[in-house]
């Protein structure tokens, strides 16, 4: 059995006196999709941010692609080259075109020459279906288009793991489809993905494992078919009955 791409061991995190993660243990195999579901405030987004050190954990260990997040010798940039992140609010850089948004990190972090970075950016924009929008500014794009550019931007670092933090929650319902389609395509290519999501349909269709979190702990996890059809824990049943 190849070692997992991502593991959490006894991870704890508090913000002030509020314990956000109480004892998180999970593992994600390479090439698989793991969806995290749960009510707001359950700590789902914090889990993602622990992986690329946007949040530093208080206790426990996180290992991604063989690299320990808690090891002080590991620099932030080493982690962030391996882990790509897509945010709920897109967070595109408004003063740069789509192309510039995607090519910035390859140029400045990976050290690519401008021509190579631009070529890479064009390929990725084509991959998410937005090659004609390369010269457009975020303000000129719809929410769904902006989020697809954000996905291309994260992919430009050629990460081993892609993190999606409620990537479709800020989109109008009719537009979520175009972003979910891109995410499904990535999954089909065996990208390792961890998605915090409210889209149960997506989780059911695409996830290899689903994790249900509530109040800082993992309540239940399993294959989507089982978890959605026959949840074992009461809290899981209660949550699913409200959202399904």
């Amino acid at each position: 059995m190849p070692s997992p791409m991502l593991t959490f061991s006894h991870v704890r995190k508090s913000f002030g006196t509020h314990a956000v993660l109480k004892d998180i243990n999970l593992s994600v195999a390479a090439g698989t999709v793991c969806c995290i579901i749960g009510p707001s405030g359950s700590g789902k987004s914090t889990v993602l941010r622990c992986i690329n050190r946007l949040v530093t954990i208080d206790a426990g260990e996180v290992v991604v692609d063989g690299v320990s997040v808690t090891d002080p010798a590991v620099k932030d940039v080493d982690l962030r080259r391996r882990v790509g992140m897509v945010f709920q609010q897109f967070n595109l850089f408004p003063h740069m075109t789509a192309l510039e948004n995607v090519s910035l990190a390859p140029r400045k972090v990976r050290g690519l020459r401008t021509a190579d970075a631009n070529a890479l950016a064009q390929r990725l924009l084509a991959k998410v279906g937005l090659s004609e929008k390369a010269a457009s500014y975020p303000a000129q794009l719809s929410g769904g288009q902006q989020q697809r550019v954000a996905i291309a931007r994260a992919l430009a670092m050629e990460p081993k793991v892609m993190l999606f933090d409620e990537a479709t929650s800020a989109l109008d319902p009719e537009i979520t489809g175009e972003v979910l389609a891109v995410m499904k395509a990535l999954a089909a290519e065996h990208t390792t993905m961890v998605c915090v999501t409210h889209e149960m349909g997506f989780a059911r269709e695409v996830a290899d494992r689903v994790i249900f979190m509530d109040d800082g702990v993992i309540v239940e996890e399993g294959a989507p078919a089982e978890l959605f059809a026959a949840p074992k824990m009461e809290r899981t049943k209660a949550f699913l009955s409200k959202v399904l």
Binding site: N52, L54, V77, N91, R153, A154
Partner: peptide, 23 residues
């Protein structure tokens, strides 16, 4: 400048100087 901008720039691995300069 919205906090998300700094988050996104950090997540891409940009150095603090580059974050300030480009974003």
């Amino acid at each position: 400048v919205p906090a998300g901008q700094r988050e996104a720039a950090s997540a891409l691995g940009l150095s603090r100087f580059d974050q300030l300069r480009y974003v």
